[in-house]
């Protein structure tokens, strides 16, 4: 008995002591998690979730900002889809912008990432330089680029003039205004894509390349058969993010062209701003916002569907 009594029962005693401690610990962890998540969740609810739901409701109303709202069912959507040439123009402009901007900023981002991935001296400096436009405020960049694009005295046309090219009136020519906005946007965003690709490239195990070299694979083969497949998750992320970002283009168009000439550079978000804040029709503006959401949603779903065919997570 005595010996039995002296035998400690480690399984029990610690359990009774440990259990509450582990609960307390878990409580602490849970609390800490929520505290850290809290500001973001509150911000998301107040500035994203609630406005998104509110916009859906408002889209069914005729809401003159200062007069209050009147329920009109699907009338805003009917007008938008069948009766609004400006919406059609804005939709086409946004698609053109998105296709060009995503294609160029992804291709250039990848090309530059491959270059700055070389271990040469001073490469960190180049990486920083390429990222600078991305971290600069778009409005500030747009104001500077407006000067660069000036027809006679602007740097771009002056430079073109040196090689005998008579540059166009960039921002006041409906043929060139959209390409001018795209050019600025590509210049601004490729640096961000470059950083993502660079991270992806540095995660590719070196031994794959070594093995391929031993097998006699050329540089092009190594790029096609190792780099691209190994980079496909990054590529997928970059493309999805770029498309969503491109659909939301606004600042450049507002500051550089105000959507003109005519509606040549009126994008969907600029059109939302014009209808909602400049003209005061919040209901109609909300219906455009939901049309934009529908387009982005469809594109994103399609991408997630087709990613299975080309993205490899090995």
């Amino acid at each position: 008995m005595a010996s039995r009594a002296t035998v400690p029962r480690p399984a029990e005693t610690p359990r009774t002591e440990l259990a509450p401690r582990s609960w307390r610990q878990r409580d602490h962890e849970t609390l800490a998690a929520y505290l850290f998540l809290g500001p973001n969740i509150i911000g998301f609810l107040i500035f994203t979730a609630i406005p998104v739901v509110a916009a859906l409701v408002i889209a069914f109303y005729d809401w003159d900002l200062l007069l209050g709202a009147k329920f009109i069912g699907l009338e805003n959507f009917r007008e938008l889809l069948f009766d609004d040439e400006n919406f059609r123009a804005a939709f086409v402009n946004t698609m053109v912008f998105t296709v060009a901007n995503v294609a160029l900023s992804v291709a250039i981002g990848l090309a530059i990432a491959l270059l700055v991935n070389l271990s040469l001296r001073g490469m960190v400096l180049f990486r920083s330089i390429f990222l600078l436009p991305y971290v600069t405020v778009t409005v500030a960049l747009s104001l500077v680029w407006k000067w660069l694009y000036l027809p006679e005295v602007g740097l771009i046309n002056q430079t073109l003039g040196l090689v005998g090219i008579d540059g166009p009136r960039w921002l006041t020519d409906s043929t060139w205004a959209m390409p001018a906005l795209i050019f600025l946007s590509v210049w601004k965003t490729f640096g961000y894509n470059m950083v993502l690709f660079l991270a992806g490239l540095q995660n590719i195990p070196e031994h794959l390349y070594d093995a391929a070299k031993v097998d006699g694979a050329s540089a092009a083969q190594r790029f096609r058969d190792i780099t691209l497949p190994m980079l496909s998750p990054t590529m997928f992320f970059v493309v999805v993010i770029s498309i969503i970002g491109s659909f939301q283009v606004f600042d450049q168009a507002l500051v550089m062209t105000a959507g003109g000439p005519g509606t040549a550079t009126t994008t969907l978000v600029l059109y939302i701003y014009q209808r909602g804040f400049q003209s005061g029709y919040m209901g109609y503006a909300s219906s455009i916002a939901w049309a934009l959401f529908a387009v982005v949603f469809v594109f994103t779903v399609i991408q997630f569907r087709i990613q299975r065919r080309w993205v490899s997570y090995d």
Binding site: R169, T172, D173, S174, A258, G259, G260, P261, G262, T263, T266, Q274, Q278, S279, G280, Y281
Partner: peptide
Amino acid sequence: WQETEVMLTQDFNPIFLGEQ
């Protein structure tokens, strides 16, 4: 007028540019 001016400003600018 607010909306009229937004509409007119945008629709009128091509005539100043000789585009329409």
